[in-house]
Design a protein around this nucleic acid. Structure first.
Lengths: 355, 355
DNA sequence: ATGAAAGCGCTAACAC
DNA sequence: GTGTTAGCGCTTTCAT
């Protein structure tokens, strides 16, 4: 068995409580005693059992994070941000992946609650808020990240998707494009915002909105490349062909580019393409991809800070939303040969961190 | 406060112990009582507090996984495999990332131990076994994954790196190449194995080994593209230029390919390139990359199963090593135009899972 | 088949 | 400053 506080107390002839106080930096312990305890703790390399501490104190000093899929670098980055945001406060992160299955997600949430996490961060893969009843019942604070769910009156941290849509579309307009298509996704909060931003940007430049230039598809998260390819094929059949496309995400953009190249069209000379997400692979592609960066690490960090503040003061925060402003990253798929990639850009593995 | 077993017991006029037994499927409970308890449990949507269960029983039903970096898809995939391997046994996985910092890794290991994990899986980013003293002190079983450390007499799950090196090199030989270079990494268990496999394959085909064709670099995990580029530049200066390169990992191969293209050499006509790891990006590249697949999910699953068996029978296992056989994935960077990528290969996001 | 008692290792409230 | 007492919500052992 591992060393326990009791052992240290007995070794030193003091009470267990005194040891406990020393370990939690309580002021009401004599200096000499404190030193003796710390010495013995170091000698034995004693580590307090956090499970028990949690049980006795009612706080576990852990925060749970549920993501749809860790293979999606967006969420891996987000996890990194959360982790970084907690480390300084000596809180610990427990990561769970839902494997894109709403059922597994619910199960993982139950597990985390049963493990006594003090707060929960959820990048949901649910279609609606129905599955969250046990969450609502438990009193612990929880925060949605990346994707918002209607009907859950809780905090949200995510991208300002309207701004993202505007940014991407304005960029294409600024390059002189006027027939700008949009490949969008069905029924989720992020796609609604991006579509609105797209429309706003068009309106601001007095470009009439054309419904036929908007291709709406589903499952763009899981099979973006494939579906982006198909959507682009459709768009190419239009009488008035688009000269630019704003794609819901980067995978969709990869598919769109492949379709264009397969049809002997040049990117970006004939059709400029921009994605959204700025995944790590963006700069590795045949045509390096312009995209909208969503700073997932920053999102994670913001969510962590928010969670800590919710735990600290047990009240609801004033702000219910924390929207991270997106950033335009223009590369070859919109700028063409005007884009001289920096040596670093071509050679670095990771994007520079956005901390 | 959440519902407790006591509440259910009082509601039903039975003892807390009986409820506990029902919940853990103990046989010594009457059928009628069992039904009443389960009914009430469902009504209240009761979830046992796992922290407490762990405290009382001495088992936490959790397993810890420490990886160097979740952004590295290899480890994200591995985590997925571990998670899948545990889910069926209703064990839960706690993932921690060391952010490539040996110090953080040690800290995360301490945390996981303090949380009472029943076993620990470690994909280490340490340079040596010195930091693992507290692990050795604690009696919980732990398993190294992917990278082995000398001096820790424990179980290991990983790639058969010698086979990987042989496979890659044999492939290049089978394509008629005879001046096969190798960009290798310094001082880690995986690179030693791959180098040996490379030599073995050359020997088997009676191709003399040339030291000048082996470029040894460090930090290939973190800055592989950059360093691969530089290493390739060096190799191109040789009087007898290589006609193929086996790179330690895929990022290094990406760098090598960029260097070759920048020097107006054709891949694979002038120089064939193969990597190792078969990362998700392999098929997205300018020249889709041949690689050696290491089945990280399968590794994770194997490690999970091994951990469970170590927990079950408290003894050491007979086998100390579990080596997963690598697989050759030949693409355009070695096969050239002979490689007709399948529609799926060009369009799918994820590799087919290896479960 | 059911339950009383003891205890897991710690913290919190209060007394000395 | 230090120690005592009473839990936290379960499991385990053993008696009935």
């Amino acid at each position: 068995m591992a060393v326990r506080m009791k052992d240290i107390a007995e070794d030193l002839g003091v009470s267990l409580v005194t040891v406990s106080k020393v370990l939690r930096n309580k002021p009401d312990v004599g200096d000499a005693t404190r030193k003796r305890v710390l010495k013995r703790v170091r000698e034995l390399d004693y580590q307090p059992n956090m499970l028990v501490r949690g049980l006795a104190s009612g706080k576990s000093y852990t925060i749970g994070l549920v993501v749809p899929d860790l293979l999606h670098t967006f969420f891996a980055e987000m996890a990194k941000g959360v982790s970084a945001g907690l480390r300084s406060e000596s809180y610990q992160l427990i990561i769970a992946s839902a494997e894109e299955e709403p059922g597994i997600e619910r199960q993982e949430i139950e597990h985390l609650l049963a493990r006594g996490v003090d707060a929960l961060l959820i990048a949901s893969c649910q279609n609606n808020a129905r599955g969250y009843k046990s969450l609502l019942k438990s009193k612990i604070p929880y925060i949605l990240i990346d994707r918002n769910l209607a009907g859950l009156n809780t905090c949200f941290v995510g991208t300002d998707d309207v701004a993202a849509g505007r940014l991407a579309t304005e960029h294409l307009i600024s390059l002189g494009r006027r027939n700008i298509a949009h490949i969008s996704c069905k029924l989720i909060s992020t796609s609604v915002g991006r579509l609105r931003g797209y429309k706003e940007a068009l309106a601001a430049s007095h470009i009439p909105f054309r419904q036929d230039l908007v291709a709406i598809r589903s499952r763009l998260e899981e099979a973006g490349v494939q579906i982006g390819y198909g959507a682009m094929e459709e768009l190419l059949k239009l009488k008035k062909r688009p000269d630019a496309v704003f794609c819901y995400n980067d995978l969709t953009a990869v598919g769109a580019i492949r379709c264009l190249l397969a049809n002997k069209l040049r990117v970006p000379e004939d059709v400029a393409v921009i994605g959204c997400g700025n995944l790590l692979l963006s700069s590795y592609l045949e045509v390096s991809l312009s995209s909208i960066d969503q700073s997932p690490q920053q999102q994670g960090k913001a969510a962590a800070k928010l969670a800590l503040s919710l735990i600290a003061r047990k009240q609801k925060p004033t702000e219910k939303c924390c929207l991270i402003p997106p950033k335009l990253i223009a590369r070859r798929s919109t700028l063409g040969s005007a884009y001289k990639e920096l040596a670093e850009e071509r050679l670095l593995v990771h994007k520079t961190s956005t901390t």
